[in-house]
Design a protein around this nucleic acid. Sequence first.
DNA 1: AAAAAACATCCGTATTTTCCGCTAATTTCA
DNA 2: TGAAATTAGCGGAAAATACGGATGTTTTTT
Lengths: 200, 200
Amino acid sequence: MTKIKFLIVGDHNLVCKGIRQLLEREPDLEVVGALSSLAELEKKIAEHQPDIIVIDAPIKKENDLIWTKDITSRSPISKVVILSGYDSAEYIHAAHAAGAYAFVSKKDSAETLIHAIRESHRRAKSFPAYLDSYDYSPLTEIELAVLDLIAKDKTNSEIGEQLNISKRTVEHHVSSILRKLHVKSRSGAVGKAFMLGLLQ
Amino acid sequence: MTKIKFLIVGDHNLVCKGIRQLLEREPDLEVVGALSSLAELEKKIAEHQPDIIVIDAPIKKENDLIWTKDITSRSPISKVVILSGYDSAEYIHAAHAAGAYAFVSKKDSAETLIHAIRESHRRAKSFPAYLDSYDYSPLTEIELAVLDLIAKDKTNSEIGEQLNISKRTVEHHVSSILRKLHVKSRSGAVGKAFMLGLLQ
DNA sequence: AAAAAACATCCGTATTTTCCGCTAATTTCA
DNA sequence: TGAAATTAGCGGAAAATACGGATGTTTTTT
Protein backbone atom coordinates (compact mmCIF):
# COMPACT_ATOMS: atom_id res chain seq x y z
CA MET A 1 0.00 0.00 0.00
CA THR A 2 1.27 3.45 -0.88
CA LYS A 3 1.03 5.84 1.99
CA ILE A 4 -0.25 9.38 1.71
CA LYS A 5 2.85 11.52 2.13
CA PHE A 6 2.46 14.95 3.66
CA LEU A 7 4.24 17.94 5.11
CA ILE A 8 3.18 19.93 8.15
CA VAL A 9 3.90 23.65 8.21
CA GLY A 10 3.37 25.86 11.24
CA ASP A 11 5.27 28.02 13.69
CA HIS A 12 3.42 26.74 16.74
CA ASN A 13 5.91 24.03 17.59
CA LEU A 14 3.72 22.46 20.23
CA VAL A 15 0.67 22.28 18.00
CA CYS A 16 2.63 20.78 15.10
CA LYS A 17 4.25 18.16 17.28
CA GLY A 18 0.87 17.22 18.69
CA ILE A 19 -0.82 17.00 15.30
CA ARG A 20 2.04 14.93 13.98
CA GLN A 21 1.70 12.56 16.90
CA LEU A 22 -2.02 12.19 16.18
CA LEU A 23 -1.62 11.62 12.47
CA GLU A 24 1.26 9.18 12.67
CA ARG A 25 -1.00 6.69 14.35
CA GLU A 26 -2.80 6.25 11.05
CA PRO A 27 -1.27 3.44 8.99
CA ASP A 28 -1.98 5.08 5.64
CA LEU A 29 -0.45 8.45 6.53
CA GLU A 30 3.23 9.31 6.48
CA VAL A 31 4.70 12.60 7.69
CA VAL A 32 7.69 13.33 5.48
CA GLY A 33 8.59 16.62 7.13
CA ALA A 34 7.61 19.43 9.46
CA LEU A 35 8.50 23.07 8.80
CA SER A 36 8.18 26.10 11.00
CA SER A 37 7.97 28.61 8.18
CA LEU A 38 6.71 28.77 4.63
CA ALA A 39 10.08 29.97 3.36
CA GLU A 40 11.61 26.50 3.24
CA LEU A 41 8.52 25.01 1.68
CA GLU A 42 9.54 25.13 -1.95
CA LYS A 43 12.69 23.12 -1.36
CA LYS A 44 10.84 20.56 0.72
CA ILE A 45 8.15 20.10 -1.91
CA ALA A 46 10.76 19.40 -4.57
CA GLU A 47 12.53 17.03 -2.21
CA HIS A 48 9.58 14.98 -0.98
CA GLN A 49 6.84 15.50 -3.56
CA PRO A 50 4.20 15.33 -0.83
CA ASP A 51 0.59 14.54 -1.65
CA ILE A 52 -0.69 16.87 1.02
CA ILE A 53 0.56 20.00 2.74
CA VAL A 54 -1.10 20.76 6.06
CA ILE A 55 -0.72 24.42 6.90
CA ASP A 56 -1.32 25.28 10.52
CA ALA A 57 -2.48 28.85 9.97
CA PRO A 58 -1.86 31.61 10.70
CA ILE A 59 1.89 31.69 10.53
CA LYS A 60 3.28 34.93 11.83
CA LYS A 61 4.42 37.49 9.29
CA GLU A 62 3.54 35.25 6.38
CA ASN A 63 0.33 35.16 4.39
CA ASP A 64 -0.75 31.55 4.33
CA LEU A 65 -3.35 32.03 1.66
CA ILE A 66 -1.00 33.77 -0.75
CA TRP A 67 1.34 30.81 -0.33
CA THR A 68 -1.55 28.46 -0.84
CA LYS A 69 -2.39 30.15 -4.07
CA ASP A 70 1.20 29.95 -5.17
CA ILE A 71 1.59 26.29 -4.25
CA THR A 72 -1.62 25.16 -5.90
CA SER A 73 -0.81 26.90 -9.15
CA ARG A 74 2.80 25.78 -9.34
CA SER A 75 2.73 22.33 -7.73
CA PRO A 76 -0.65 20.80 -8.59
CA ILE A 77 0.50 17.44 -7.21
CA SER A 78 0.49 18.79 -3.68
CA LYS A 79 -2.89 19.59 -2.21
CA VAL A 80 -3.15 22.15 0.57
CA VAL A 81 -5.17 21.53 3.72
CA ILE A 82 -5.63 24.62 5.87
CA LEU A 83 -5.85 23.96 9.58
CA SER A 84 -6.88 27.04 11.47
CA GLY A 85 -8.31 28.32 14.69
CA TYR A 86 -9.58 31.31 12.78
CA ASP A 87 -12.71 29.85 11.25
CA SER A 88 -14.81 32.80 10.17
CA ALA A 89 -16.82 32.36 7.01
CA GLU A 90 -14.74 35.04 5.34
CA TYR A 91 -11.48 33.24 5.97
CA ILE A 92 -12.82 29.88 4.86
CA HIS A 93 -14.12 31.46 1.68
CA ALA A 94 -10.72 32.99 1.09
CA ALA A 95 -8.99 29.63 1.64
CA HIS A 96 -11.32 28.06 -0.90
CA ALA A 97 -10.67 30.83 -3.37
CA ALA A 98 -6.93 30.44 -2.91
CA GLY A 99 -7.20 26.86 -4.11
CA ALA A 100 -7.03 24.92 -0.85
CA TYR A 101 -8.55 21.43 -0.90
CA ALA A 102 -9.82 21.49 2.62
CA PHE A 103 -10.41 23.70 5.60
CA VAL A 104 -10.35 22.12 9.04
CA SER A 105 -10.99 24.07 12.21
CA LYS A 106 -8.84 23.37 15.22
CA LYS A 107 -12.08 22.80 17.05
CA ASP A 108 -12.83 19.77 14.87
CA SER A 109 -11.87 16.22 15.82
CA ALA A 110 -8.72 14.47 14.68
CA GLU A 111 -10.94 12.24 12.56
CA THR A 112 -12.16 15.28 10.64
CA LEU A 113 -8.61 16.26 9.80
CA ILE A 114 -7.68 12.71 8.81
CA HIS A 115 -10.80 12.48 6.69
CA ALA A 116 -10.01 15.80 5.03
CA ILE A 117 -6.51 14.60 4.21
CA ARG A 118 -7.80 11.40 2.64
CA GLU A 119 -10.48 13.24 0.72
CA SER A 120 -8.00 15.81 -0.53
CA HIS A 121 -5.74 13.00 -1.65
CA ARG A 122 -8.47 11.71 -3.94
CA ARG A 123 -9.05 15.30 -5.06
CA ALA A 124 -12.33 15.84 -3.27
CA LYS A 125 -12.71 19.13 -1.45
CA SER A 126 -13.72 19.37 2.20
CA PHE A 127 -15.23 22.60 3.43
CA PRO A 128 -17.78 23.31 6.14
CA ALA A 129 -21.29 22.85 4.79
CA TYR A 130 -22.71 26.07 6.17
CA LEU A 131 -20.62 28.08 3.76
CA ASP A 132 -23.14 27.57 0.95
CA SER A 133 -25.94 29.46 2.61
CA TYR A 134 -23.86 32.11 4.27
CA ASP A 135 -24.76 35.67 3.34
CA TYR A 136 -22.10 38.32 3.84
CA SER A 137 -20.09 40.95 2.02
CA PRO A 138 -16.62 39.57 2.35
CA LEU A 139 -13.35 41.35 2.68
CA THR A 140 -10.82 40.32 0.09
CA GLU A 141 -7.62 38.56 1.06
CA ILE A 142 -5.55 41.69 0.84
CA GLU A 143 -8.12 43.68 2.76
CA LEU A 144 -7.97 41.14 5.57
CA ALA A 145 -4.18 41.27 5.52
CA VAL A 146 -4.31 45.07 5.74
CA LEU A 147 -6.89 44.95 8.52
CA ASP A 148 -4.77 42.50 10.46
CA LEU A 149 -1.78 44.81 10.23
CA ILE A 150 -3.90 47.79 11.26
CA ALA A 151 -4.86 45.89 14.41
CA LYS A 152 -1.18 45.19 14.96
CA ASP A 153 -0.41 48.90 15.27
CA LYS A 154 0.99 49.49 11.80
CA THR A 155 0.67 52.76 9.85
CA ASN A 156 -0.33 52.73 6.20
CA SER A 157 3.26 53.31 5.17
CA GLU A 158 4.48 50.38 7.23
CA ILE A 159 1.72 48.19 5.85
CA GLY A 160 2.75 49.16 2.35
CA GLU A 161 6.34 48.20 3.02
CA GLN A 162 5.35 44.90 4.57
CA LEU A 163 3.03 43.95 1.72
CA ASN A 164 5.17 45.50 -1.00
CA ILE A 165 2.54 47.92 -2.24
CA SER A 166 2.43 51.71 -2.16
CA LYS A 167 1.06 53.72 0.71
CA ARG A 168 -1.65 55.00 -1.60
CA THR A 169 -2.82 51.50 -2.41
CA VAL A 170 -3.02 50.70 1.26
CA GLU A 171 -5.18 53.78 1.67
CA HIS A 172 -7.49 52.46 -0.99
CA HIS A 173 -7.81 49.12 0.76
CA VAL A 174 -8.48 50.86 4.05
CA SER A 175 -11.29 52.82 2.41
CA SER A 176 -12.80 49.58 1.13
CA ILE A 177 -12.54 48.03 4.57
CA LEU A 178 -14.25 51.01 6.19
CA ARG A 179 -17.03 50.94 3.59
CA LYS A 180 -17.63 47.20 3.92
CA LEU A 181 -17.62 47.22 7.71
CA HIS A 182 -19.71 50.42 7.84
CA VAL A 183 -17.31 52.29 10.09
CA LYS A 184 -15.55 55.62 9.69
CA SER A 185 -12.24 54.95 11.42
CA ARG A 186 -9.59 52.26 11.35
CA SER A 187 -9.93 51.76 15.08
CA GLY A 188 -13.65 51.24 14.60
CA ALA A 189 -12.84 48.70 11.92
CA VAL A 190 -10.55 46.79 14.27
CA GLY A 191 -13.22 46.86 16.97
CA LYS A 192 -15.91 45.58 14.64
CA ALA A 193 -13.61 42.97 13.14
CA PHE A 194 -13.00 41.49 16.56
CA MET A 195 -16.71 41.58 17.34
CA LEU A 196 -17.54 39.78 14.09
CA GLY A 197 -14.78 37.27 14.56
CA LEU A 198 -12.90 38.47 11.50
CA LEU A 199 -9.87 38.86 13.70
CA GLN A 200 -8.91 36.95 16.79
CA MET B 1 4.75 7.38 42.97
CA THR B 2 1.89 9.81 42.91
CA LYS B 3 1.26 11.22 39.47
CA ILE B 4 0.57 14.87 38.76
CA LYS B 5 -3.11 15.00 37.89
CA PHE B 6 -4.28 17.65 35.49
CA LEU B 7 -7.13 18.88 33.34
CA ILE B 8 -6.82 20.32 29.84
CA VAL B 9 -9.27 23.05 28.82
CA GLY B 10 -9.56 24.41 25.31
CA ASP B 11 -12.00 24.66 22.46
CA HIS B 12 -9.41 23.71 19.88
CA ASN B 13 -10.17 20.02 19.99
CA LEU B 14 -7.28 19.09 17.73
CA VAL B 15 -4.75 21.04 19.72
CA CYS B 16 -5.97 19.58 23.00
CA LYS B 17 -5.87 16.05 21.68
CA GLY B 18 -2.37 16.61 20.40
CA ILE B 19 -1.13 18.11 23.65
CA ARG B 20 -2.74 15.31 25.58
CA GLN B 21 -0.97 12.78 23.40
CA LEU B 22 2.35 14.52 24.02
CA LEU B 23 1.88 14.77 27.77
CA GLU B 24 0.62 11.24 28.32
CA ARG B 25 3.99 9.90 27.27
CA GLU B 26 5.38 11.27 30.53
CA PRO B 27 5.20 8.67 33.31
CA ASP B 28 4.64 11.23 36.07
CA LEU B 29 1.74 13.03 34.38
CA GLU B 30 -1.85 11.91 34.29
CA VAL B 31 -4.61 13.59 32.31
CA VAL B 32 -7.80 13.25 34.31
CA GLY B 33 -10.00 15.13 31.88
CA ALA B 34 -10.28 17.39 28.85
CA LEU B 35 -12.91 20.11 28.52
CA SER B 36 -13.87 22.24 25.58
CA SER B 37 -15.23 25.13 27.59
CA LEU B 38 -14.66 26.77 30.92
CA ALA B 39 -18.29 26.37 31.89
CA GLU B 40 -17.92 22.75 32.99
CA LEU B 41 -14.69 23.45 34.81
CA GLU B 42 -16.07 23.93 38.31
CA LYS B 43 -17.73 20.53 38.36
CA LYS B 44 -14.63 18.82 37.01
CA ILE B 45 -12.39 20.43 39.59
CA ALA B 46 -14.61 19.20 42.40
CA GLU B 47 -14.72 15.77 40.82
CA HIS B 48 -11.02 15.25 40.12
CA GLN B 49 -9.19 17.69 42.39
CA PRO B 50 -6.50 18.20 39.74
CA ASP B 51 -3.06 19.54 40.64
CA ILE B 52 -2.80 21.46 37.41
CA ILE B 53 -5.22 23.02 34.94
CA VAL B 54 -3.77 23.67 31.49
CA ILE B 55 -5.80 26.32 29.69
CA ASP B 56 -5.29 26.44 25.95
CA ALA B 57 -6.09 30.14 25.46
CA PRO B 58 -7.88 31.94 24.03
CA ILE B 59 -11.22 30.21 24.27
CA LYS B 60 -13.75 32.00 22.15
CA LYS B 61 -16.28 34.17 23.93
CA GLU B 62 -14.84 33.32 27.33
CA ASN B 63 -12.30 35.32 29.22
CA ASP B 64 -9.60 32.87 30.23
CA LEU B 65 -7.94 35.24 32.64
CA ILE B 66 -11.11 36.06 34.55
CA TRP B 67 -11.61 32.33 35.00
CA THR B 68 -8.00 31.97 36.05
CA LYS B 69 -8.51 34.59 38.72
CA ASP B 70 -11.65 32.83 39.89
CA ILE B 71 -10.04 29.40 40.00
CA THR B 72 -6.90 30.47 41.82
CA SER B 73 -8.85 32.31 44.50
CA ARG B 74 -11.44 29.60 45.09
CA SER B 75 -9.47 26.40 44.47
CA PRO B 76 -5.91 27.06 45.64
CA ILE B 77 -5.06 23.37 45.24
CA SER B 78 -5.29 23.63 41.44
CA LYS B 79 -2.56 25.60 39.71
CA VAL B 80 -3.28 27.18 36.33
CA VAL B 81 -0.89 26.93 33.39
CA ILE B 82 -1.74 29.20 30.47
CA LEU B 83 -0.81 27.88 27.05
CA SER B 84 -1.22 30.54 24.37
CA GLY B 85 -0.25 31.47 20.86
CA TYR B 86 -0.51 35.12 21.76
CA ASP B 87 2.60 35.91 23.74
CA SER B 88 2.67 39.67 24.12
CA ALA B 89 4.20 40.99 27.31
CA GLU B 90 0.89 42.54 28.37
CA TYR B 91 -0.97 39.28 28.09
CA ILE B 92 1.68 37.42 30.03
CA HIS B 93 1.58 40.11 32.68
CA ALA B 94 -2.17 39.84 32.84
CA ALA B 95 -1.89 36.06 33.21
CA HIS B 96 0.59 36.55 36.04
CA ALA B 97 -1.63 39.11 37.71
CA ALA B 98 -4.61 36.75 37.44
CA GLY B 99 -2.70 34.21 39.50
CA ALA B 100 -1.51 31.75 36.87
CA TYR B 101 1.54 29.67 37.79
CA ALA B 102 3.03 29.50 34.34
CA PHE B 103 2.79 30.89 30.84
CA VAL B 104 3.90 28.74 27.92
CA SER B 105 3.88 29.90 24.32
CA LYS B 106 2.67 27.49 21.66
CA LYS B 107 5.95 28.14 19.94
CA ASP B 108 7.83 26.55 22.82
CA SER B 109 8.81 22.89 22.89
CA ALA B 110 6.82 20.16 24.58
CA GLU B 111 9.62 19.95 27.12
CA THR B 112 8.98 23.55 28.14
CA LEU B 113 5.33 22.79 28.80
CA ILE B 114 6.17 19.64 30.74
CA HIS B 115 8.74 21.53 32.76
CA ALA B 116 6.25 24.29 33.50
CA ILE B 117 3.71 21.73 34.71
CA ARG B 118 6.23 20.10 37.03
CA GLU B 119 7.42 23.46 38.34
CA SER B 120 3.87 24.63 38.94
CA HIS B 121 3.17 21.44 40.82
CA ARG B 122 5.91 22.28 43.29
CA ARG B 123 4.52 25.81 43.42
CA ALA B 124 7.31 27.48 41.46
CA LYS B 125 6.21 29.96 38.84
CA SER B 126 7.36 29.79 35.23
CA PHE B 127 7.22 32.97 33.20
CA PRO B 128 9.43 34.28 30.38
CA ALA B 129 12.46 36.03 31.84
CA TYR B 130 12.11 39.24 29.87
CA LEU B 131 8.98 40.12 31.83
CA ASP B 132 10.99 41.54 34.71
CA SER B 133 12.22 44.54 32.77
CA TYR B 134 8.88 45.26 31.19
CA ASP B 135 6.86 48.07 32.70
CA TYR B 136 3.21 47.30 32.85
CA SER B 137 0.54 49.52 34.31
CA PRO B 138 -3.16 48.82 34.27
CA LEU B 139 -5.61 51.19 32.61
CA THR B 140 -7.77 53.41 34.79
CA GLU B 141 -11.53 53.28 34.59
CA ILE B 142 -11.86 56.33 32.41
CA GLU B 143 -9.07 55.17 30.16
CA LEU B 144 -10.93 51.92 29.68
CA ALA B 145 -14.12 53.85 28.93
CA VAL B 146 -12.28 55.93 26.34
CA LEU B 147 -10.70 52.83 24.83
CA ASP B 148 -14.10 51.18 24.59
CA LEU B 149 -15.50 54.15 22.68
CA ILE B 150 -12.46 54.19 20.40
CA ALA B 151 -13.23 50.57 19.52
CA LYS B 152 -16.82 51.63 18.86
CA ASP B 153 -15.72 53.94 16.05
CA LYS B 154 -15.92 57.24 17.94
CA THR B 155 -13.66 60.26 17.36
CA ASN B 156 -12.08 62.10 20.27
CA SER B 157 -14.68 64.88 20.01
CA GLU B 158 -17.53 62.41 20.13
CA ILE B 159 -15.95 60.65 23.08
CA GLY B 160 -15.65 63.98 24.87
CA GLU B 161 -19.33 64.73 24.31
CA GLN B 162 -20.37 61.30 25.47
CA LEU B 163 -18.25 61.42 28.65
CA ASN B 164 -18.81 65.16 29.25
CA ILE B 165 -15.15 66.08 29.09
CA SER B 166 -13.28 68.21 26.60
CA LYS B 167 -11.66 66.89 23.47
CA ARG B 168 -8.30 67.83 24.99
CA THR B 169 -8.85 65.64 27.98
CA VAL B 170 -9.78 62.77 25.76
CA GLU B 171 -6.54 63.33 23.86
CA HIS B 172 -4.64 63.13 27.12
CA HIS B 173 -6.30 59.84 28.04
CA VAL B 174 -5.59 58.46 24.61
CA SER B 175 -1.90 59.22 24.93
CA SER B 176 -1.87 57.52 28.33
CA ILE B 177 -3.54 54.47 26.81
CA LEU B 178 -0.98 54.33 24.00
CA ARG B 179 1.90 54.63 26.44
CA LYS B 180 0.57 51.93 28.76
CA LEU B 181 -0.19 49.46 26.00
CA HIS B 182 3.07 50.21 24.21
CA VAL B 183 1.42 51.02 20.91
CA LYS B 184 1.56 54.11 18.74
CA SER B 185 -1.93 54.18 17.26
CA ARG B 186 -5.48 53.92 18.54
CA SER B 187 -6.18 51.02 16.21
CA GLY B 188 -3.17 49.21 17.62
CA ALA B 189 -4.55 49.89 21.09
CA VAL B 190 -7.91 48.38 20.15
CA GLY B 191 -6.21 45.33 18.64
CA LYS B 192 -4.10 44.75 21.71
CA ALA B 193 -7.01 45.37 24.05
CA PHE B 194 -9.06 42.65 22.42
CA MET B 195 -6.15 40.24 22.56
CA LEU B 196 -5.70 41.00 26.25
CA GLY B 197 -9.36 40.62 27.02
CA LEU B 198 -9.61 44.26 28.13
CA LEU B 199 -12.43 44.63 25.65
CA GLN B 200 -14.98 42.17 24.40
C1' DA C 1 -2.08 64.79 59.67
C1' DA C 2 1.27 66.17 56.27
C1' DA C 3 3.76 64.91 52.17
C1' DA C 4 3.99 62.46 47.94
C1' DA C 5 2.08 60.22 44.14
C1' DA C 6 -1.32 59.39 40.91
C1' DC C 7 -5.30 60.92 38.41
C1' DA C 8 -8.18 64.01 35.83
C1' DT C 9 -8.94 68.18 33.83
C1' DC C 10 -7.68 71.92 30.40
C1' DC C 11 -4.81 74.68 26.61
C1' DG C 12 -1.22 75.84 22.51
C1' DT C 13 1.62 74.50 18.68
C1' DA C 14 3.66 71.54 15.37
C1' DT C 15 3.87 67.36 12.84
C1' DT C 16 2.16 63.07 11.20
C1' DT C 17 -1.39 60.17 9.79
C1' DT C 18 -5.70 59.28 8.15
C1' DC C 19 -9.24 59.75 5.01
C1' DC C 20 -11.56 61.22 0.76
C1' DG C 21 -12.15 63.29 -3.60
C1' DC C 22 -10.51 62.63 -8.48
C1' DT C 23 -8.50 59.77 -12.25
C1' DA C 24 -6.58 55.62 -14.54
C1' DA C 25 -3.56 51.47 -15.89
C1' DT C 26 -3.13 46.50 -15.19
C1' DT C 27 -4.59 42.00 -13.85
C1' DT C 28 -8.02 38.51 -13.02
C1' DC C 29 -11.86 35.93 -13.81
C1' DA C 30 -16.31 34.40 -15.12
C1' DT D 1 -15.45 40.86 -23.34
C1' DG D 2 -17.15 43.11 -19.51
C1' DA D 3 -16.94 43.40 -14.31
C1' DA D 4 -14.30 43.39 -10.32
C1' DA D 5 -9.99 43.67 -7.94
C1' DT D 6 -5.58 45.61 -7.47
C1' DT D 7 -2.51 48.83 -8.37
C1' DA D 8 -1.11 53.94 -8.02
C1' DG D 9 -0.55 59.31 -8.36
C1' DC D 10 -2.12 64.26 -6.89
C1' DG D 11 -4.08 67.25 -3.67
C1' DG D 12 -6.34 68.61 0.45
C1' DA D 13 -9.21 68.62 4.72
C1' DA D 14 -9.79 66.41 9.06
C1' DA D 15 -8.20 63.78 12.72
C1' DA D 16 -4.81 62.08 15.57
C1' DT D 17 -0.43 62.36 17.89
C1' DA D 18 3.77 64.50 20.13
C1' DC D 19 5.74 68.11 22.57
C1' DG D 20 5.34 71.59 25.68
C1' DG D 21 2.82 73.55 30.33
C1' DA D 22 -0.92 74.44 34.12
C1' DT D 23 -4.36 73.40 38.02
C1' DG D 24 -7.21 70.92 41.28
C1' DT D 25 -8.63 66.40 43.28
C1' DT D 26 -8.09 61.91 45.09
C1' DT D 27 -5.35 58.24 46.90
C1' DT D 28 -1.42 56.40 49.04
C1' DT D 29 2.44 56.65 51.84
C1' DT D 30 5.14 58.21 55.47
